[in-house]
Design a protein around this nucleic acid. Sequence first.
DNA 1: TCTAGCCTACCTTCTGGTAGGTAGAACGCG
DNA 2: CGCGTTCTACCTACCAGAAGGTAGGCTAGA
Lengths: 186, 186
Amino acid sequence: METKAALLQAAEQSARTFGIDGFSFADLARAVGIRKASVHHHFPTKADLAAEMVRRYHEALLTDLDAIDAASDTAGQRLRRQIARYRFALGGGKTLCLCVALSAGRESLTAEAIDALAEYRQTVRAWLTEVFAKGAADGTIIGPGQPEKDAAASLALLEGAQLWARTEMDIRRFDDAVGPLLARII
Amino acid sequence: METKAALLQAAEQSARTFGIDGFSFADLARAVGIRKASVHHHFPTKADLAAEMVRRYHEALLTDLDAIDAASDTAGQRLRRQIARYRFALGGGKTLCLCVALSAGRESLTAEAIDALAEYRQTVRAWLTEVFAKGAADGTIIGPGQPEKDAAASLALLEGAQLWARTEMDIRRFDDAVGPLLARII
DNA sequence: TCTAGCCTACCTTCTGGTAGGTAGAACGCG
DNA sequence: CGCGTTCTACCTACCAGAAGGTAGGCTAGA
C-alpha cells in the first residue's frame, strides 16, 4: 500500500511539473525504485492512474476546505487563506495545482478524469460562492457583484495567475494578478 | 513559402487543441500533405517550430490590438472587444489561445520560446493597463484599483476562464468567469 | 550550376502495455 | 498442526508503434 501511495505522490508531482504527457511509467518506476512493469501492477493504465490522482486530489481539497473553515473567523479570512493555498501550490513558480496542470493536457485524459476535474472545480466554486455571500453579510469582503459570479471569476483568476507565474517562474506575477482580489478583503 | 505557412497554421491549431506535446511532426505532415522529413526542411527541430509559432502569434496580436484601437471610441469598448477576442479564441470550447496552451507544456519549451511568451503577455498587459487608465479617465470602466493591477488581474482572469471553459467544453464557464469584469464596463 | 522543396529509407530512443514467472505472506481445511 | 492453495507485489523480457531526427537522393526553376 505504501508503494502505491509513493507512486501517486510521484505522479502528482510530475504531473504538476511536466503535465500529464510529460512523465512516463518508467519515470515513476525510477522515482519510487521499482520496475516499470510493477507500476502497471498498481495502475493497469495511465488512465487509471490519472483517475485516482484526481480522486485523491479532490479528497485533499475537502480536507483543506474544512481546515480553512475551522481556522477562520470571517469570510475575508477564508478567502485570504484560499488565495494563499493557490499561492502555495505554485511551489515558488515550479508547479501548478493538479487541476490546472491536467486541464492543459485535457486531450490525454479520459472522460472520467475530465468529469472529476469538473467536480473539483464545482466544489471550489460552491465554497467560494458561500464565502462571497458571507463576506457581503459580515462586511469583510467589499465590492458589488453576485456571490456566484464573483466565485467563478475568482477561481478563473487564481488558476490563470498560477499559469502565468509558472510560465515565468516568478511568483510576483501571481501576486500582481491577485492584488485586486486581495484588496477587496477588509 | 505557402507550405511553411500551412505548417505553422496546422501547428498552431494542433498546439491550441492538444498542447505542444500533443502533436508530432508526422501529424503536421499528414495535415499538410507532405512527408515527415519535409517538415524538418522548414523547421529543423520542434523547438524552431515552437519559437516561430510564438513569434507569429505575437505579430497577430499586435495587428489585432491595432484593429481594436482603430474600431473603438471608448476604453470600455476596447476592453469589451479584448474579452470577445479571448472568447473567440476558445473556438466554442475546443481550443485555447496559444499563450495558455504553450504555458501548460512549459517544460517542453526552449528558453527562447518561454521568453517570447513572457513578451506576449507583457504586450497584452501593457495594452490593458492603458485601457484601464483611459477607462478611469473617460468613465467607461468603473471600479477602484490601479490600472496596472487591474490589467494583470484581467489577463489572468481571461486565461483562467479559457482554461476552465475548454476543460468542460462549455463556453458558459468563460462567460460566468468574465461576468464581473464585463459588469465594470459602462 | 546552385538551391529550394520535396522524397524514400533509416536510425535511436522512448512510449504504454503484455506475458509469464517467482518469492513470500495469508488462508482454508482435514 | 501441517499442507496445499491463492494472492500480492514484485521481477525479467518482450512487443508494436510512435517519437524526433538524419542521410542522401531527385527534380524543377532561377
